[in-house]
Design a protein around this nucleic acid. Structure first.
Lengths: 148, 148
DNA sequence: TATTGTTATACTCTATAACTATA
DNA sequence: TATAGTTATAGAGTATAACAATA
């Protein structure tokens, strides 16, 4: 566990799944740290940012699919953010079973601050990546994250 | 939540942290599915693959740092794999507090099978990535995963 | 005094099944 | 018969603090 091997973990360092997992662990730590002052974490931030950026407003089912959460998990996240007046549930005019989720003005404001904080945390995560390298990474990663 | 927006989730689709998180969720699902027949999951596989590929054998503390786990979590993982005869704890000749972890012959065999299964699962994760794109992604992601 | 492995505990996250109201 | 949101529950993963042996 020293020299080149230490930095890459033998064969494991060539394993895309492992690299994604390790990058994610670092990313969650960094993001949660900067989001904490805003009373958000990576999950509530993702939901808030999603509904703040979507038009038309997504249903809870669509939110669950996009964030890779079970619909039952979305309930609690929406409850918490709605209780803080950041988002609200509205009836879906096209399906009385469904509820769409929209950001309030306060929610959109906080989403903006949170996004800035998250981007700042992201930068500390890869201090040596050039803007062009970052764009390449995002483009490739998007094809993995949205392969289905 | 339709058209281009549906595929990228508005601004969230440009968020590297979010893309990493979503790719990781997909990756864990795919990997756990193929590892299940081998009685492994992503965490036990990562530990087994790490100790099978490392020489000299890492201590539990080094394993924890590399896999981004708390040292107390490593205890249970090592217990389980050691109970199956796949790895073993050996006293560290240089520090009587520490224990190094080594793969047994059976462990190295299983690590090889698991690695093949994990790579196969990885391919289903990004069916359209060319080998060269995959290499680029791995190289960039490694700089994020090992920035510290 | 500090560190390694360990145990214990609590908290978050995830997975599953069932219920209700609608479709 | 199937789907959206909800509730409940159990399991997996994570974080923290404390302890004995050793440095």
């Amino acid at each position: 566990m020293e020299g080149t091997s230490a930095a890459e973990g033998g064969r494991l360092g060539d394993d895309l799944s492992f690299l994604i997992a390790r990058a994610n662990a670092l990313s969650i730590s960094a993001a949660n740290a900067v989001l904490k002052p805003l009373d958000l974490n990576v999950r509530s931030y993702a939901l808030l940012a999603l509904v703040a950026g979507e038009d038309p407003a997504p249903t809870q089912r669509e939110i669950a699919a996009f964030l890779r959460l079970d619909p039952s998990q979305v309930v609690g996240l929406v409850d918490a953010l709605e209780g803080r007046g950041l988002i609200e549930r509205l009836p879906d005019p096209r399906d009385r079973r469904a509820r769409t989720v929209t950001a309030t003005a306060a929610g959109r404001t906080l989403a903006g601050e949170a996004r800035a904080a998250a981007l700042e945390a992201e930068r500390t995560l890869h201090p040596t990546l050039t803007p062009s390298e970052r764009e390449t990474l995002i483009a490739l990663l998007r094809r993995v994250a949205f392969a289905d």
